[in-house]
Protein backbone atom coordinates (compact mmCIF):
# COMPACT_ATOMS: atom_id res chain seq x y z
CA UNK A 1 0.00 0.00 0.00
CA UNK A 2 1.32 3.41 -0.94
CA UNK A 3 -0.41 6.77 -1.20
CA UNK A 4 1.36 10.02 -2.04
CA UNK A 5 -0.56 13.28 -1.62
CA UNK A 6 0.60 16.83 -2.32
CA UNK A 7 -1.32 19.73 -0.80
CA UNK A 8 -0.47 23.09 -2.33
CA UNK A 9 -1.60 26.58 -1.52
CA UNK A 10 -0.57 29.94 -0.16
CA UNK A 11 0.90 30.50 3.30
CA UNK A 12 -1.89 31.00 5.80
CA UNK A 13 -4.49 28.77 4.09
CA UNK A 14 -4.09 25.91 6.55
CA UNK A 15 -2.26 23.34 4.44
CA UNK A 16 -0.26 22.20 7.48
CA UNK A 17 -3.41 21.40 9.47
CA UNK A 18 -4.75 19.47 6.48
CA UNK A 19 -1.57 17.45 6.11
CA UNK A 20 -1.39 16.67 9.84
CA UNK A 21 -5.02 15.55 9.82
CA UNK A 22 -4.43 13.22 6.88
CA UNK A 23 -1.28 11.82 8.48
CA UNK A 24 -3.07 11.31 11.79
CA UNK A 25 -5.95 9.46 10.12
CA UNK A 26 -3.58 7.13 8.27
CA UNK A 27 -1.68 6.45 11.49
CA UNK A 28 -4.90 5.58 13.25
CA UNK A 29 -5.28 2.93 10.56
CA UNK A 30 -1.92 1.44 11.47
CA UNK A 31 -0.06 2.83 8.46
CA UNK A 32 3.31 4.53 8.44
CA UNK A 33 3.37 8.19 7.49
CA UNK A 34 5.92 10.80 6.53
CA UNK A 35 5.06 14.40 5.81
CA UNK A 36 7.09 17.38 4.76
CA UNK A 37 5.88 20.89 5.45
CA UNK A 38 6.92 24.43 4.66
CA UNK A 39 7.46 26.46 7.82
CA UNK A 40 9.21 29.79 7.91
CA UNK A 41 9.36 32.82 5.67
CA UNK A 42 7.15 31.30 2.95
CA UNK A 43 4.29 31.12 5.44
CA UNK A 44 3.84 34.87 4.91
CA UNK A 45 1.65 34.59 1.80
CA UNK A 46 4.30 32.66 -0.17
CA UNK A 47 3.71 29.41 -2.07
CA UNK A 48 3.56 26.41 0.28
CA UNK A 49 3.30 22.69 -0.37
CA UNK A 50 2.92 19.79 2.02
CA UNK A 51 3.85 16.27 1.01
CA UNK A 52 2.13 13.37 2.73
CA UNK A 53 3.33 9.83 2.15
CA UNK A 54 1.37 6.93 3.50
CA UNK A 55 2.38 3.29 3.23
CA UNK A 56 4.20 0.34 4.69
CA UNK A 57 7.76 0.79 3.46
CA UNK A 58 8.40 4.52 3.07
CA UNK A 59 11.62 6.21 1.97
CA UNK A 60 11.90 9.98 2.40
CA UNK A 61 9.25 12.58 3.06
CA UNK A 62 9.61 14.33 -0.31
CA UNK A 63 7.48 12.98 -3.15
CA UNK A 64 9.41 12.69 -6.44
CA UNK A 65 8.09 14.33 -9.61
CA UNK A 66 5.22 12.50 -11.35
CA UNK A 67 4.61 10.24 -8.32
CA UNK A 68 1.76 11.88 -6.39
CA UNK A 69 -1.55 10.05 -6.50
CA UNK A 70 -3.41 13.20 -5.51
CA UNK A 71 -2.79 16.90 -5.82
CA UNK A 72 -5.01 18.91 -3.51
CA UNK A 73 -4.89 22.60 -4.36
CA UNK A 74 -6.13 25.36 -2.09
CA UNK A 75 -5.32 28.06 -4.65
CA UNK A 76 -5.68 27.80 -8.42
CA UNK A 77 -2.31 29.09 -9.65
CA UNK A 78 -0.49 27.12 -6.95
CA UNK A 79 -2.22 23.96 -8.15
CA UNK A 80 -0.75 24.60 -11.59
CA UNK A 81 2.68 25.25 -10.05
CA UNK A 82 2.61 21.80 -8.40
CA UNK A 83 1.22 19.83 -11.37
CA UNK A 84 4.65 18.31 -12.05
CA UNK A 85 4.26 16.25 -8.88
CA UNK A 86 1.15 14.44 -10.14
CA UNK A 87 1.58 10.97 -11.60
CA UNK A 88 -0.02 10.11 -14.95
CA UNK A 89 -3.62 9.21 -14.14
CA UNK A 90 -3.49 11.00 -10.79
CA UNK A 91 -6.33 13.09 -9.41
CA UNK A 92 -6.48 16.84 -8.88
CA UNK A 93 -8.94 18.41 -6.47
CA UNK A 94 -8.51 22.13 -6.62
CA UNK A 95 -10.09 25.31 -5.46
CA UNK A 96 -11.11 27.69 -8.20
CA UNK A 97 -10.28 30.54 -5.87
CA UNK A 98 -7.55 32.96 -6.86
CA UNK A 99 -5.38 34.68 -4.29
CA UNK A 100 -3.86 37.49 -6.31
CA UNK A 101 -0.36 38.26 -5.08
CA UNK A 102 0.84 41.80 -4.50
CA UNK A 103 3.17 41.45 -7.51
CA UNK A 104 0.13 41.24 -9.80
CA UNK A 105 -1.49 44.31 -8.23
CA UNK A 106 1.72 46.17 -8.98
CA UNK A 107 1.78 44.95 -12.58
CA UNK A 108 5.01 42.96 -12.03
CA UNK A 109 3.43 39.65 -13.02
CA UNK A 110 0.19 38.22 -14.40
CA UNK A 111 -2.62 36.09 -13.07
CA UNK A 112 -4.75 34.35 -15.69
CA UNK A 113 -7.49 32.34 -14.06
CA UNK A 114 -9.07 30.95 -17.22
CA UNK A 115 -5.74 29.79 -18.64
CA UNK A 116 -4.92 27.96 -15.41
CA UNK A 117 -8.28 26.19 -15.36
CA UNK A 118 -7.96 25.25 -19.02
CA UNK A 119 -4.42 23.97 -18.48
CA UNK A 120 -5.51 21.71 -15.63
CA UNK A 121 -8.46 20.39 -17.65
CA UNK A 122 -6.22 19.67 -20.63
CA UNK A 123 -3.49 17.98 -18.62
CA UNK A 124 -5.45 16.04 -16.04
CA UNK A 125 -8.27 13.61 -16.79
CA UNK A 126 -9.45 13.41 -13.20
CA UNK A 127 -9.71 17.04 -12.17
CA UNK A 128 -12.33 18.38 -9.79
CA UNK A 129 -12.83 22.12 -9.35
CA UNK A 130 -14.45 23.34 -6.16
CA UNK A 131 -15.83 26.79 -5.55
CA UNK A 132 -14.21 27.07 -2.13
CA UNK A 133 -15.20 30.70 -1.78
CA UNK A 134 -18.93 29.93 -1.90
CA UNK A 135 -18.54 26.70 0.07
CA UNK A 136 -16.62 28.53 2.82
CA UNK A 137 -19.43 31.07 3.09
CA UNK A 138 -21.84 28.17 3.33
CA UNK A 139 -19.69 26.74 6.12
CA UNK A 140 -19.82 30.10 7.88
CA UNK A 141 -16.05 30.60 7.96
CA UNK A 142 -13.91 32.12 5.19
CA UNK A 143 -10.92 30.14 6.48
CA UNK A 144 -12.55 26.70 6.33
CA UNK A 145 -11.31 25.93 2.79
CA UNK A 146 -8.73 23.44 4.02
CA UNK A 147 -11.31 21.35 5.89
CA UNK A 148 -13.83 21.53 3.03
CA UNK A 149 -11.34 20.34 0.42
CA UNK A 150 -10.21 17.47 2.66
CA UNK A 151 -13.84 16.52 3.14
CA UNK A 152 -14.11 16.36 -0.64
CA UNK A 153 -10.92 14.32 -0.88
CA UNK A 154 -12.19 11.85 1.74
CA UNK A 155 -14.89 10.60 -0.66
CA UNK A 156 -12.39 9.52 -3.34
CA UNK A 157 -12.39 5.77 -3.99
CA UNK A 158 -9.42 3.63 -3.03
CA UNK A 159 -8.19 5.66 -0.07
CA UNK A 160 -6.70 3.68 2.81
CA UNK A 161 -8.99 5.46 5.27
CA UNK A 162 -12.65 6.22 5.85
CA UNK A 163 -14.03 9.79 5.69
CA UNK A 164 -15.01 9.49 9.37
CA UNK A 165 -11.40 8.75 10.31
CA UNK A 166 -10.16 11.85 8.52
CA UNK A 167 -12.85 13.97 10.15
CA UNK A 168 -12.01 12.57 13.60
CA UNK A 169 -8.34 13.34 12.99
CA UNK A 170 -9.22 16.94 12.04
CA UNK A 171 -11.36 17.41 15.11
CA UNK A 172 -8.53 16.20 17.35
CA UNK A 173 -6.36 19.01 16.02
CA UNK A 174 -8.73 21.97 16.40
CA UNK A 175 -9.79 23.74 19.59
CA UNK A 176 -13.07 22.65 21.19
CA UNK A 177 -14.99 25.77 20.15
CA UNK A 178 -14.20 25.23 16.45
CA UNK A 179 -15.13 21.55 16.33
CA UNK A 180 -18.72 22.06 15.14
CA UNK A 181 -17.84 24.48 12.38
CA UNK A 182 -15.08 22.14 11.18
CA UNK A 183 -17.36 19.11 11.18
CA UNK A 184 -19.90 21.13 9.20
CA UNK A 185 -17.27 22.31 6.73
CA UNK A 186 -16.00 18.74 6.24
CA UNK A 187 -19.54 17.59 5.47
CA UNK A 188 -20.01 20.43 2.97
CA UNK A 189 -16.85 19.27 1.20
CA UNK A 190 -18.07 15.69 1.10
CA UNK A 191 -21.38 16.67 -0.38
CA UNK A 192 -19.84 19.05 -2.91
CA UNK A 193 -17.66 16.19 -4.17
CA UNK A 194 -20.55 13.79 -4.41
CA UNK A 195 -22.49 16.40 -6.37
CA UNK A 196 -19.63 17.13 -8.77
Amino acid sequence: MKLDVVISGVGGQGSILASRALAGAAMANGLNVLTSEVIGMAQREGPVTSHIRIGNDLCGALIPDHEADFLIGLELSETVRSLGKLKPGGTVITSEMAIIPVSVQLGLSKYDRETYKRHIREQVKKAVFLDLETLSHLAGNPRAGNVIIMGAFSTCPGLPLQPEQLLRSFLQLVPEKYKDINAHAFEIGRRAMEAS
Binding site: E45, G46, S77, S103, S109
Partner: peptide
Protein backbone atom coordinates in the same frame (compact mmCIF):
# COMPACT_ATOMS: atom_id res chain seq x y z
CA UNK B 1 8.64 15.19 -21.83
CA UNK B 2 7.23 17.87 -19.58
CA UNK B 3 4.36 20.02 -20.75
CA UNK B 4 5.37 23.63 -20.22
CA UNK B 5 3.31 25.42 -17.57
CA UNK B 6 1.44 28.61 -18.39
CA UNK B 7 2.97 31.80 -17.04
CA UNK B 8 2.40 31.80 -13.28
CA UNK B 9 2.21 34.80 -10.97
CA UNK B 10 5.28 35.80 -8.99
CA UNK B 11 4.37 34.96 -5.43
CA UNK B 12 6.99 36.06 -2.96
CA UNK B 13 6.30 36.15 0.78
CA UNK B 14 5.12 39.59 1.93
CA UNK B 15 4.48 41.36 5.23
CA UNK B 16 1.08 40.27 6.55
Amino acid sequence: GETPLPELPLRTPVLC
